[in-house]
Simulated scan of single mutants.
Amino acid sequence: MSVLAKFGKTLAATAVAATVATAAYAAPVNIRVQSVISASADEVVMLQNFAEDVLALTKDDPVTIEVLPAGAVVANSGVLDAVDKGLVEGGFAWTHYWSGKHPAAALFGSPPAGGGIGMDNLAFLSWFQFAGGKELYDQLWTEMGVNVKGFMLQPVGPEALGWFKEPITSMADFRKYRFRTPPGIPGQAYKDIGVASVAMGGGDILPALEKGTIDAAEWCCPKPDSVFGFQKVLKHYYLQGLHQVVVNADMYINGDVYNAMTDHQKKALEVAANASLSKAMSYRIYENGKALKKLVEEDGVILHDTPADYFPAYMNAAKALLEKNADENAFFKTVYDSQKAFAEVAVPFWAGAQASNAALGKAYADSLKK
């Protein structure tokens, strides 16, 4: 072997060794993530599970995610700005919380009435992962002008219509109540159909109900709702709602912190986030089922079907708002057009398949009542 060849082999071996050493001894990364919700909430339970997955995938170059309680560094409304400025490395909320910064945030966090195009959470994930949604999601933060990297983690919907003092049999009954709703387009759609919509944070809802500031409320689903304790003050519960058929929680990391990570660390976050999307839905089905059973059988909650005239009223109002925003904002239109193009292809198939699933499930649920 020539001296030159020996030198080449030595150089190559040295490069490989250096690469391995760099991978093995990459600087640990600690990300403090301030949540906008109580540490006891299911969302934080699932966020902790995501953190455990990330750490397991990065044991040689550890990425540790430390979940901070709501208000630990800044007020909930300031979480995204705090991450942008580097006051805290990460944040956790729902994408639509930032609709004030850009209206298109609603299309990722909570497109009301399934975007008016028949999307449920599974269809949304199909769009997000395989039809260009993730690339548009990455662009959203640039459109907002914030230095963050987002990771969608937790699909939650469909959310319940909510809790009422008395049964409602029509929209006329519904309009009698001051009703807590999500912020942004979902809440505005309620206002447009004559409901006295009041936006407020999760921690303020129960005190507002107890004081009579509001008369009815929605938050999420049976498990999170029961943790909040709505059943202590209201007994009439309606599962079928349209305002958040699709709703997604996500984590944000400061862009400089993210860019300083190794490729392996970044990949671990991506893999764990994809796993979280599936695990969150699986977790919710079982936990909500157990919670609903307890609410009805032990806590005296009466389950009702949502009045039929709610559905066309809300659907039409939500779609009109989405189209209005698309007319007024170019990026919103880009995202909404992408969702509509996806829905034209995917929803006819998925709706037909889901009809069979729903009929099967309802037949079994009805048999349990006999």
Rank of each mutant, 00 (worst) to 15 (best):
S2M: 11
A5P: 03
T10D: 08
A13F: 15
T14R: 11
A21C: 08
S35R: 05
S38G: 11
P62L: 02
T64R: 15
E66A: 09
V67K: 02
L68V: 10
V73N: 03
G78H: 09
V88L: 13
E89F: 05
G90E: 06
G91L: 06
A93I: 01
W98K: 00
A113M: 06
Q129N: 15
Q129P: 07
A131H: 15
G132W: 06
K134D: 11
L136I: 03
L136N: 05
W141F: 15
V148L: 08
Q154M: 11
G157L: 01
E159P: 00
A160M: 07
E166V: 10
A172D: 14
Y190P: 08
K191L: 15
V195A: 05
A199F: 11
G201E: 13
G203L: 04
D204I: 10
I205M: 07
I205E: 00
L206T: 14
V227T: 12
V227E: 08
L234H: 05
Q244H: 14
V245P: 06
V245I: 15
V246R: 04
A249V: 03
M251V: 12
T262L: 00
H264A: 07
A275N: 13
A275G: 07
M281N: 09
S282G: 15
I285Y: 11
N288Q: 05
G289N: 08
K290I: 07
K293G: 05
K293P: 02
G300F: 10
L303W: 15
D305H: 14
D305A: 12
T306G: 08
P307L: 09
P307M: 10
D309T: 02
Y314E: 09
M315F: 08
N316F: 06
A317N: 03
L322G: 00
L322T: 00
E323I: 15
N325H: 14
A326V: 08
K333W: 15
T334M: 15
E344H: 02
A351M: 06
G352D: 10
A359C: 14
